Simulated assay, not measured.
Amino acid sequence: MKTHSAAAFTKAFDRITQSHYIQEAVVLIEDSQGNYSWSRGYGGRDIDSPLLMASIGKLFTTTCILALQERGQLSLNDRLAMYIDDQLLSGLHVYQGREYTSKLTVSDLLFQASGLPDIFEESKNATNARAIQQDFSYDLDDMIRWTKQLKPHFAPGTKGKAHYADINFDLLGAVIEKVNGTTIADAYEEFIYRPLKLTSTYLPLSVDDHIPSICYKEQRLNLPLFVCSCRASGGTITTARELMIFLKAFFGGKLFNSAVMHTLAQYNRLQLTMGPIRYGGGYMRIGLQTLLTAFRGSGELLGHSGTSGSFAFYYPKKEIFFVGDLNQLAKPSWPIRFVMQLAMKA
């Protein structure tokens, strides 16, 4: 780590928290050897404050899928129809007049290569904008019904194609529950919380569970129904301290055999609205030699961000981990830009 990195990190954090959009924030940076740890909080937040993981929770779902595969209880090549009722799925993926639903595999979902549309960005009925206006709940049946009203973007597994959609991971959650014979919350407990001794990380099951508020511009939103509905695609609550423990374990082979990672490192560019992000097997890849860094960066970031402002990324070139939260729905690209800046200064 550069001797001036701490000062550079502080400058970058102070700059982003000076925005009137950011009401609270936290960041934690550590190296893989445990020799370096730096953190900052803003607006009353620190590394033990609860935060909504949002789509970082997809890494939890990925962990469960890989652990079950390691046990021999499923294969990434398994058809989705092996685990979810045909009648419920029928008509989910109809592309150019041909039904592809029966061809959807666990791998298609994990790699965001199903071609299914994202109802939260593409549907007028159930979008992130609706959640900002009014808290509401939904379940997998709703997700499937809403998705059937939209057109897929390509046939499943089309080479070089990926399209980010939450339903991919909601369906994976249903697969995990079927295979493991438990709820997704219990699966997280079995495969993640217990092995890592996480005590402040949980998937809220009811509005009575503590669910942090989410900021949208100057508003502070309470969305317990919506967060409880996200489940396998991003409803988990954690802290920066415990998120760091998980992220190191995910990329360090403590939750599943790390030998599988090479099969996950097959990245395809996502839709234009996702910027420089490519998606592999359950996680994002962001190259640092891009227009956003004036092509001065090198290496890549691996991990995930959340639309609420959360982030969890590993920078293999420097063996550094970045986790935290900016808690701002109105600026979903900010956490990625922020981590890219931090990596450039490391």
Rank of each mutant, 00 (worst) to 15 (best):
S55Q: 06
A7Y: 12
A312L: 09
I192S: 06
R278L: 11
Q23E: 04
N327R: 03
Y83Q: 06
Q149A: 14
L172T: 06
N125K: 06
L247N: 03
P204C: 13
G306T: 06
P335T: 10
Y279K: 09
P335Q: 13
T199R: 14
S233D: 13
I84Q: 03
Q33K: 10
T238P: 00
T63C: 08
S258Q: 15
T17Q: 08
L109Y: 08
K161M: 06
D85Y: 02
L264P: 00
N125Q: 13
E189F: 05
V227P: 10
I65L: 14
G280S: 15
I132F: 14
L110P: 02
G181P: 01
L52Q: 05
Y36M: 04
W38H: 09
S123V: 03
F9Y: 15
M274L: 04
P332N: 07
H262V: 11
S90M: 10
R145I: 00
M274W: 11
L140W: 09
E218P: 07
E121G: 07
M274F: 10
G41P: 01
L104E: 05
I119V: 10
I192L: 09
D142K: 07
A131E: 04
K159G: 02
G324Q: 12
G43F: 02
T263D: 15
Y216G: 03
Y283N: 06
Y83I: 10
L110H: 10
T62C: 11
G72A: 10
D135T: 01
I336P: 00
H210E: 15
T182Y: 08
R40N: 07
A174F: 07
L59D: 09
A162V: 00
Y42Q: 04
S55T: 05
P316F: 15
D86V: 03
A187R: 09
P204M: 12
A265K: 13
T105A: 07
N257M: 05
I167V: 09
P117Y: 10
P335L: 12
L291C: 01
A187T: 07
Q18D: 14
G282S: 12
G299F: 08
P224F: 06
T101A: 07
R45F: 15
S213I: 03
T101M: 07
E189N: 11
Y267G: 02
M261H: 13
F321Q: 04
Q133E: 12
